[in-house]
Design a binder for these strands. Structure first.
Length: 290
DNA sequence: CGTATTTGACCTGCGC
DNA sequence: GCGCAGGTCAAATACG
């Protein structure tokens, strides 16, 4: 019931908004992928696509990720440029952006003011949250995380877990908590950007990667091509269960099935802007397969 | 033995 | 100033 009943009530009544926290910085230049740490190095969110295949045992049930933005939910049929653009930070999705900004302000004041003794850099790290329907709290996303804390959440019977990327120089964090509205839904909030490629993925640097990467789009384009096509061909896995919003990046390849699967997340970036990429990204063979 | 998790204490910011 | 809530630290513990 959850997957289809993911109405706005979640975004509306649920304090999810609090999770969308996009700083101005990323808004203007960072892409969703970048937020996650996907930059030049290949694997990252996209890698997640393979995640399910690599970590099947950890996730007993099919993972369902959803966008927190109701709008996204409304346009599952047109994942392509639609979802992408909507995810953009511009004004395409005012509501979404607004929510994010709103939250941002609130949290910003809080976080920013927190200087922290050492310069642990309490800077407003870009954040984004997405909901996933899963029985397991900690979803695999291609990176290794170390849990460093757990706290009870005021308005929720479920505790919130705090994870940190195990990479030494990477201070990406993520919070995981269950929606009190629907315990079957896990809300994951990422904060910061990975400064390294996914450790769990060998990162296929093959598959005709074009050198023509110039913008955010390319950021994911490359990985996508490599990972997706790679896995698709070799594993035939419908990377639908991935946790990350691959939709964005791959919305091009997004086979309707993909979107159908489930997964919503709140990007708030502009990588989606390059629709053109999609075409490039989507290997012809993939299309054929479909 | 090295690494990851658990968990209570501690710190910080905010509202009253 | 006090209490609350969110977030982090770090010692103890568990696990492979």
């Amino acid at each position: 019931m959850a997957s289809s009943s993911f109405p706005d009530n979640i975004s509306a009544s649920f304090p999810l908004q609090g999770m969308f926290d996009l700083s101005e910085g990323e808004k203007s230049s960072l892409g969703f992928m970048e937020l996650l740490g996907i930059q030049d190095f290949g694997p990252s969110l996209f890698d997640m696509s393979q995640v399910p295949s690599t970590v099947p045992s950890s996730s007993p049930n099919p993972i369902v990720t959803k966008m927190e933005s109701p709008e996204m939910l409304n346009q599952p049929a047109t994942p392509n440029s639609s979802s992408i653009s909507s995810a953009s930070s511009d004004a395409v999705n005012d509501e979404q952006v607004k929510v994010e900004e709103h939250e941002e302000n609130q949290q910003k004041t809080k976080k920013q003011l927190k200087p922290k003794k050492t310069n642990q850099k309490r800077q407003r790290e870009p954040r984004f949250a997405f909901m996933t329907k899963s029985e397991v709290d900690h979803l695999e996303d291609g990176y290794r995380w170390r849990k460093y804390g757990q706290k009870a959440v005021k308005d929720s019977p479920f505790p919130r877990s705090y994870y940190r990327c195990t990479s030494a120089s990477c201070n990406v964090k993520k919070r995981v908590e269950r929606s009190f509205n629907d315990p079957s839904i896990v809300v994951t909030t990422y904060e910061g950007q990975h400064t390294h490629p996914s450790p769990l993925i060998p990162r296929p640097s093959l598959v005709g990667v074009h050198p023509g990467n110039s913008v955010a789009g390319s950021a994911f384009a490359m990985p996508m091509q490599g990972t997706l096509s790679h896995y698709q061909q070799h594993q035939q896995q419908p990377f639908v269960n991935t946790l990350l919003p691959m939709n964005f990046g791959c919305n091009g390849l997004t086979n309707a099935s993909l979107l159908h699967e489930r997964r919503f997340f709140i990007p708030g970036t502009e990588l989606l802007k390059d629709h053109g990429l999609l075409q490039d990204i989507v290997p012809s063979h993939m299309l054929k397969e479909e």
